[in-house]
Design a protein around this nucleic acid. Sequence first.
DNA 1: GGACATTCTGTTATGGATAACAAATACTGT
DNA 2: ACAGTATTTGTTATCCATAACAGAATGTCC
Lengths: 340, 340
Amino acid sequence: MTAPQFTRGPAMRDVASAAGVSAQTVSRVLNEHPNVQESTRRRVLAAVEELGYRRNNTARALVTGQSKTIGVLTLATNNYSRSSLALGVELGAREAGYTVNSVTSSLSAQALTDAVSRLVHQGVDGIIIAAPLQEAAEQVSKITSRIPTVNTDGSSSMGDRMVGVDQDIAAVLATKHLLDLGHKTVWHVAGPVEWSDAASRLGSWRRTLQEAGCEVPPELHGDWSPESGYRNGLILGRMPEVTAILVASDEMAFGVIRALTELGRRIPEDISVVGIDDIDLAAFSNPPLTTIRQSFEDTGRRAVQRLVAQIANPALENTPDLVAPTLIVRGSTAPPPADN
Amino acid sequence: MTAPQFTRGPAMRDVASAAGVSAQTVSRVLNEHPNVQESTRRRVLAAVEELGYRRNNTARALVTGQSKTIGVLTLATNNYSRSSLALGVELGAREAGYTVNSVTSSLSAQALTDAVSRLVHQGVDGIIIAAPLQEAAEQVSKITSRIPTVNTDGSSSMGDRMVGVDQDIAAVLATKHLLDLGHKTVWHVAGPVEWSDAASRLGSWRRTLQEAGCEVPPELHGDWSPESGYRNGLILGRMPEVTAILVASDEMAFGVIRALTELGRRIPEDISVVGIDDIDLAAFSNPPLTTIRQSFEDTGRRAVQRLVAQIANPALENTPDLVAPTLIVRGSTAPPPADN
DNA sequence: GGACATTCTGTTATGGATAACAAATACTGT
DNA sequence: ACAGTATTTGTTATCCATAACAGAATGTCC
């Protein structure tokens, strides 16, 4: 039962014989080696054109050991940060002449390890990890020790192979903004603690309050989803003393705002809400969301640049590459109610 | 100062000699060929384990002609449909034992052609195109004629290699919902006409109005972005006769709603708005958005399944695989104002 | 017991490109 | 003019796994 095959195109040797040269010479022309006579170069290129020849990257990868492909590991959830980072990686890769191989994983150590292993196995030249590794960290770094790796979720175990946005500053900016407006303290809907992004936002929020001499309320936890924000909003909205909330992601902030609105709390008159991420929709929520802008797309790009540099020179020294986020003030924040 | 090399792992022959067999036998064990003695099988597996051997997929791809990789082409924009479709493709691919190679492109014919060509030369076994091809269609199908391809943006030129959600039904459902509520007619903020999704929604909206004997107002156009929705909302909100708007995507609908709100129009009391997509945030907007649910993730999965079937059997007949969307009624729609 | 099928394993050729080496030609300086 | 260097091109080996073929060992049937 031979399935009808999609025929392969011409190979280098076909071009070679068409141009009356050796395959090696064709290879040299295609790789722009200097020592090729102009006349033969033209002859080869003409043959390439005529036969519609395209170099087979698989064969090339086999012999050179470089696939010109980078692997990206993300979690199998569809949130803004994931998708815009992925986009940034793809754009960055294209600019650098690389192709992207993406795999998703669940949060379990086994799944994460498998996913990375799948990438390595697939022959990628380097890996970008955009997921919290957790207990999988040790296993994973065993696999990635042989291959350049960049991490965008500053899991401690990845040491300094880290590219991203400074999460400490993000939460500090947001918290200070609310305190500056006159709020006595700021409540916090945190992300999943497994994510180091969420963890450091939580830490900086707490530290900022302490340094300002404010009471530190107990934090609530969500899972990045709007639903989880909604649930937490239903709780916070029932507490009269809550006047300011820092939500660890814009998507959760949408849920929080919805819940507060349903409970009859006005935003920002009764309660101020700040998100983090500045997703595309943040400017168009009702009210528009004050948030912390951090470009995931840019992070993806920088991660690729770092990775490519590391592929070119594995001895390259690794230093964390963190970018500062900025505060975007919109309509969801205001001074606390007067009678408070 | 020796640069730390990223060494290659052991090869099949290393395993072979460790187990005291030939490389071919190792290959047979790994591919689960039936005719291998249980004792040697165990010996080989032990050697594999001991050396930490992982089969080199590049070499495998070269000789078998199958890379177990599928390519995905998307546009370089970060919207909900793109990212959830990509997620679905990745999940589907993993289930099918495939890996995903993604490339992004701009809308120009040249860029699209290049992108597809990049995928083919990367050695993918099949391609999923999730972008409008337009004038690039002919060029692209020249390239893809040698390789299984599935399209999720029903560009006519791709004939029947089409998987997705029935866009005609989507717009019909939405328009009828508004008419059923008692609106005299429905205005429409359409997507970019290059997208066949947008085009068919536009067509069905118009047809539905005509069949219902309603006046067909001129349509407005956006580019899928919330900003473009906002701009169109500023226009529509100024026209007193507008009581119902069908927006071609939820993301644009957010912008429309924001603009209407700024103009002092209440939703749904003054104006009803329906979106399309049912993005995660739709349930949490203010007011919650009535919309048409269509699972892009599911579309991605189905596209992969179709593609894999086609890879296994290129002679497979292609029939469009369309799924019906459903109407999700939330708070952004209501009967028209009484005095209207 | 001999012809023949079955099971297991090894050998050789192959896929398409490139690195390393080798050879032929052209060019330099003395 | 001749050794010595540069330039251009070709040959051969290699990357790693698998397909196709072949040989050895065991089992079966009359």
